[in-house]
Design a protein around this nucleic acid. Structure first.
Lengths: 365, 365
DNA sequence: TTGAAAGCGCTAACAC
DNA sequence: GTGTTAGCGCTTTCAA
């Protein structure tokens, strides 16, 4: 934290030369002591009243709460945390690739997490790490220093070191996404299999048969489920997947552009392209448009995520919606439950996604 | 924070039925007491040694630091904060418009802020509010409850209530952006005037004379400076601004699309469009492309921000670069200085932006 | 139902 | 240089 040597606590007061005694009055920090004095009870009673203990009479509780409000009391988080032996903080380590990090997905997610936590009076410790050893070290440091009470892990991987580590340490966490097999932890995930099935069925209904796929990196668990959905739907429709039409992208717009070009250079061009996320779909749209193809007419392109931009691109993007903001909130709730409850269960939520049909997909021409 | 009634501190230990005494050993929390015992000195000495007080002998310091490391000691943040009377937390209230919030700008900024703060052992309290009363209430709550030691304010407005409030309260904060007149606070801002001058000069060099402008909302301070730069450059080149070619957008892609259409419906079409940010520039590109115009050839379009996507759009976007990540880091440094220093100065940094010429701008056809 | 008292881990007067 | 001691604001036994 702030270095002690330069730290002038309550600098205003000290700066002005007030003695330590009077700082309290100047800054008017209301503590339970003040409430106790006001209601003529002990601080212990006030504390228990505020925490709604049932060995306190209703009248006392009411009185305490009333005066607390009048005095503008709000608990000192540090004192509570010290006594309760909790950090009052949740860790969120964003996996980033490269220094220029900018995923619209995360700004919405952080908004959800942040709002939920701030309502609960819990802090968020955000930092970013590139997947690898550094990333695990960051988790380890926070755990060992007891800086956080739990973690939110996002974009789970098939063999996720972060999760293995946290499970080993029995450290509370929730994940946005599953792991491959062992899933003995609380998570929220969308049903990527279903999502992709919806997409493929939509395209097949439109008459498409030759469908190119720009999948997400295979390390992510969701990739596996989404590919499963694609293959299931292909199978059902009697389409035999052409492996020259399946490529893997890096989730960025640039990656989508490059991979779409690869697909469009195929001897027998696909009439539709399924991208693993919206960003890559945008890249694919650019690639198609550069070749003079009219997206939604000459070629259909679909995304996954339904980031806000998907609605406003041209043409607007057919995609799969995930309620990212509320997933963020829900994960926080689950995490707090995990931290505070002695019963360790593993709530696992799989959300059914919605297909959003927009302008980028149309009948095969 | 966590409700007391359900909270099982160190649930593992309590759950397993260990007595309070032994929790300490089980969870192996190393405190300065342990170090004191180990080195055979008092806890006060250990504390001062760790904080590098100069009334402690170098040998003692070295010994203390060594054993602290060996024992895997890390300070209890709550105890430090309680004693030092600080929150150890910085507030960051994102201004959002509408529930679906997703600005690539902010994910990069948060990454910068988060990394810097986590290095310093400071937490971040993130939440989002729509500008208005609710927003100010959030600031007020955090200030009164002493939940944070300072704020980072972003996207300053001409008449910024947040800043007025914080100045009134003499509460530490730093801003990304200036205010109109009174700027008695630390901030970092880019030189928007210069940025736009660079853009206009670039377009004029390319032969453009009829230039459309999709400006940012006038409430933001940066809009004022950017417009100033545009007018200055127009003036210098002897161009008389045509007010039918100046419209105001809302910083979203959709807004850029709509406003670009307005401009392109003008009797005398502009040969270039300056957008107030990259997102709107993308929207404008879509609008132009829909009309069969080739961006960078038939029409030039420029952005502002240089978000990562700008490099990978098609055509890639000519824009103005702002080092958002490092601005985030720098602002944190300034804020910590403001919080810990008794001298209240107002470091004000104006960054010179760089013009990034890419494919979306070309000679007038 | 309530109060007295101990203590969470740390810092900082003040004494030696 | 170092130790003693008294808290920071809160929770929680234990006794009344």
């Amino acid at each position: 934290m702030y270095s002690i040597k330069v730290l002038k606590r309550l600098s205003c007061a000290i700066f002005l030369g007030y003695s330590k005694k009077s700082i309290h009055e100047i800054c008017m920090t209301v503590t339970i002591k003040d409430i106790a004095k006001e209601v003529g009870k002990s601080i212990a009673t006030v504390s228990r009243a505020l925490n709604d203990y049932n060995d306190i009479s209703e009248e006392t509780k009411a009185l305490v709460r009333k005066t607390a409000k009048e005095l503008g009391y709000s608990p000192n988080a540090a004192a509570q945390r010290l006594q309760r032996r909790v950090a009052g903080t949740i860790g969120f380590i964003l996996p980033t690739f490269g220094p220029r990090f900018s995923d619209p997905f995360f700004s919405e997610f952080i908004a959800g997490v942040g709002n939920q936590l701030s309502e609960l009076g819990i802090d968020l410790l955000v930092s970013t790490r590139t997947p690898g050893d550094q990333e695990i070290d960051a988790y380890r440091e926070y755990v060992q220093a007891k800086r956080v009470d739990g973690f939110i892990v996002v974009r789970t991987r098939l063999n996720d070191k972060r999760i293995h580590y946290l499970l080993d340490e029995k450290f509370p966490f929730v994940a946005f996404g599953r792991m491959d097999n062992e899933n003995e932890f609380p998570f929220v995930d969308e049903d990527g299999e279903m999502g992709m099935r919806l997409i493929v069925e939509h395209l097949i209904t439109l008459g498409h048969k030759r469908i190119g796929i720009i999948s997400s990196p295979s390390e992510f668990t969701f990739t596996k489920y989404r590919m499963k959905g694609i293959h299931a739907a292909f199978n059902k429709a009697g389409i035999i997947p052409d492996h020259s039409l399946i490529v893997s992208g890096d989730l960025t717009q640039r990656g989508g552009y490059q991979k779409a070009n690869d697909l469009l250079n195929n001897r027998e061009k696909p009439s539709a392209i399924i991208a693993g996320n919206d960003l890559m779909a945008f890249g694919a749209m650019s690639a198609a448009q550069e070749r003079g193809l009219m997206v939604g007419k000459d070629i259909s392109i679909t995304g996954f995520d339904d980031i806000p931009m998907a609605e406003h691109s041209h043409p607007s993007l057919t995609t799969i919606n995930q309620p990212i903001y509320s997933i963020g909130r829900q994960l926080c709730e689950m995490l707090v439950h995990r931290i505070t409850s002695e019963i360790i269960d593993h709530p696992q939520v799989i959300l059914s996604p919605t297909l959003i049909v927009r302008g980028s997909s149309g009948p095969r021409f």
